[in-house]
Amino acid sequence: MQLIDWQDCRGAFYVDGSLRDIYIQDTTAADWDVFLDAISSKIITTFVDGEPHPLPKQASEIFERNGDTSFLLEVTLGQLKMNCHFFTEEEIELDIDPSEVTSQAELDAIIEVLSLLGSALGRDVILTDENMPTSIWIVFDAIKADVHFVAD
């Protein structure tokens, strides 16, 4: 897998009060179950309405009650945290605070997660500006099993 140099892409993590999003699009309930299984290999904490809660075995348990409760999955990668709010079954989305991405170590952790999820799901995974899935910074290409920076 090709490594991305922090100096080449540090501009993707400019701090302006917005987040960066990681998307896996056109997902199904089965994809969410693969996501939960894959991400459970990381340090995660899950919350329901702000209170710690065990990770459900299936994503359907989360989506069945998501209208009534708030479910958050937090992935801890050193000083960096990624959050998944389970907005919709059709799209897996995690967000990152760019102020937490300050070196090659955090970039490598992000790339590791993109690669983990893309490989587990056999899908492309993109890192974008907040709420802008067409403003792509980094891509895990599932066909090539490779990650690359999309220079502007």
Rank of each mutant, 00 (worst) to 15 (best):
W32K: 06
W32S: 07
D33V: 03
D33A: 05
V34L: 07
F35K: 03
A38F: 01
A38K: 03
A38S: 02
I39N: 01
S40C: 04
S40G: 06
S40L: 01
S41M: 07
K42A: 10
I43E: 09
I43A: 04
I43M: 09
I44C: 03
T45G: 06
T45L: 08
T45N: 11
T45F: 11
T46K: 08
T46M: 14
V48I: 13
V48H: 01
V48K: 11
D49Y: 07
D49A: 06
G50W: 07
E51H: 14
E51V: 15
E51M: 14
E51N: 13
P52V: 09
H53Y: 15
P54F: 11
P54D: 11
P56Q: 10
Q58F: 15
Q58L: 08
A59C: 13
S60V: 13
S60Q: 09
E61S: 11
E61F: 12
E61I: 07
E61W: 07
I62T: 00
I62W: 06
I62Q: 03
F63Y: 09
F63E: 04
F63T: 05
F63A: 04
E64D: 15
E64T: 12
R65E: 12
R65Q: 14
R65I: 06
N66H: 10
N66R: 15
N66Y: 06
G67V: 10
G67Y: 09
G67M: 08
D68S: 06
T69C: 12
S70V: 05
S70T: 08
S70P: 00
F71D: 00
F71C: 05
E74F: 00
E74D: 03
V75I: 08
T76S: 11
L77K: 00
L77M: 00
G78C: 01
G78D: 00
G78S: 02
G78T: 00
Q79R: 10
L80G: 02
K81T: 10
M82F: 04
M82Q: 08
M82L: 14
N83T: 04
N83G: 07
N83I: 00
N83D: 06
C84D: 03
C84H: 11
H85S: 14
F86K: 04
F86G: 02
E89Q: 06
E90S: 14
E91K: 11
E91R: 14
E91T: 14
I92R: 01
E93Q: 15
E93R: 15
E93L: 14
L94C: 13
D95E: 11
D97N: 15
D97W: 06
S99A: 15
S99W: 10
E100H: 13
E100M: 14
V101E: 03
V101P: 07
T102I: 11
S103A: 08
Q104A: 05
Q104W: 01
A105L: 09
E106I: 07
E106F: 04
L107G: 04
D108E: 09
D108K: 08
D108T: 13
A109P: 08
E112V: 06
S115H: 13
S115E: 15
